[in-house]
Amino acid sequence: MARILLLGGTEEARRVAEMLDEKGASFIVSLASASASPYPGPERRGGFGGEDAMVRYLENEGVEVVADATHPFAAEISPMAKRAAKRAKVRYLRLERRPWRRSAADRWIDVRSLEEAAAALDNGSDVFLTVGAHSLQPFLMRRDLRLVVRTIEKPDLGTRRDVTVIRDRGPFSIEDERALFARYQFDAMVTKNSGGDATAAKLVAARERRMLVYMVQRPRGQPWVNCRTPEQLVRRLRWYI
């Protein structure tokens, strides 16, 4: 039994778990990925099997509040979690980090989707992709592009054998990003507007090189954000600790 269900997968969620663990709270962390690094406290891994199954889980486990600290681009789990919480008559709170904001020196092109970004890239471009291991298909279909992919998980490249893959996890320093950009001489970068500090150095490196950045905007229809920092979320959870 756990009073708090923490939906994780971000550094913010890890910090929330650390603080809840320090306070001796009754909570469980839910992680969608089986390969995610361990969190403090008890865990469950994998999906819930749909909204009805999540409602049953909340009721059977005696959950009193769902603390959603998933990734800003987790477009399916957050709306489902809010609906499930409402049906199970438990509270729902959402933590989402602030998006990045462009500066006057940035050369960003805002796009609504990965497909729009892939279609907009100039023929024959050298492209740096930091969109996640499961978001590459629109770019892999562009055989004219020379792609460098940085991802935590191993990507499925299909039949492409000419893609450079860098397996790494942030945070990344500005010095490292400058060296990476100098090595590959990218024409453009495609990234999701995830926000946060862990991977923001790439934006500085791109700005310094006056490089085009195709910035994929956050999905629409996400639940209302209650908190912007782990500390704010833990304060909102104080009645359940």
Rank of each mutant, 00 (worst) to 15 (best):
G221K: 11
V148M: 05
V149K: 07
M141Y: 04
Y214G: 12
Q222E: 08
D106Q: 02
V213F: 09
I174H: 02
A34I: 03
D68F: 02
M141Q: 15
R169N: 10
R102D: 10
A118G: 10
A206F: 14
T199N: 14
V165P: 04
H71Q: 14
R142N: 01
D197Y: 11
K23L: 12
A69T: 11
A182D: 14
I77M: 15
E153D: 12
L20Y: 06
D168N: 09
F128C: 01
R102Y: 01
A34W: 04
V16Y: 02
G49E: 06
V216S: 01
D106Y: 01
A104H: 05
V111I: 03
R97V: 13
P171D: 05
G24W: 07
E22T: 10
D52H: 06
M54K: 10
R160S: 12
N193M: 05
R167H: 09
K154G: 02
T229M: 06
A105G: 13
R107S: 15
S33A: 08
P219T: 08
E64L: 09
V149Y: 05
D156Y: 06
A34L: 09
Y39S: 12
N60Q: 07
D106P: 00
R167N: 12
I28L: 07
V131L: 03
P155V: 00
E11A: 14
R160C: 12
R207V: 15
T130K: 04
R56L: 02
P223Y: 15
G158Q: 00
A200M: 12
M141G: 13
P219N: 12
A205Q: 08
G158A: 01
E76D: 11
V216D: 10
A198S: 15
A25N: 00
A206C: 11
M215I: 13
A133P: 02
P72K: 14
I4M: 02
G9R: 04
L95W: 15
A201V: 13
D126T: 10
F186C: 10
F73D: 04
G8R: 06
A36N: 07
P171E: 07
R56M: 02
P171R: 09
F172Y: 15
A88Q: 07
L140F: 01
I174T: 10
D187L: 03
R238P: 02
R142C: 02
K202D: 12
V90S: 00
E22I: 00
L157N: 09
V90D: 02
L145S: 06
I77P: 00
I152W: 00
A133E: 04
E18H: 02
P99I: 12
R3G: 01
R178L: 14
V111L: 03
R112T: 11
E59I: 09
H71G: 04
G62N: 01
R94C: 10
A34R: 13
F172D: 03
R161Q: 11
Y57K: 06
A105N: 15
R169W: 02
A133W: 05
A88E: 06
E61D: 09
I4H: 01
S173Y: 04
R228P: 05
S37Y: 01
R238L: 12
R56T: 05
D187M: 01
S173Q: 06
A85R: 05
T159P: 10
A119M: 10
L114S: 04
T199M: 13
G158H: 00
A75H: 13
N123L: 08
V204N: 13
W239P: 05
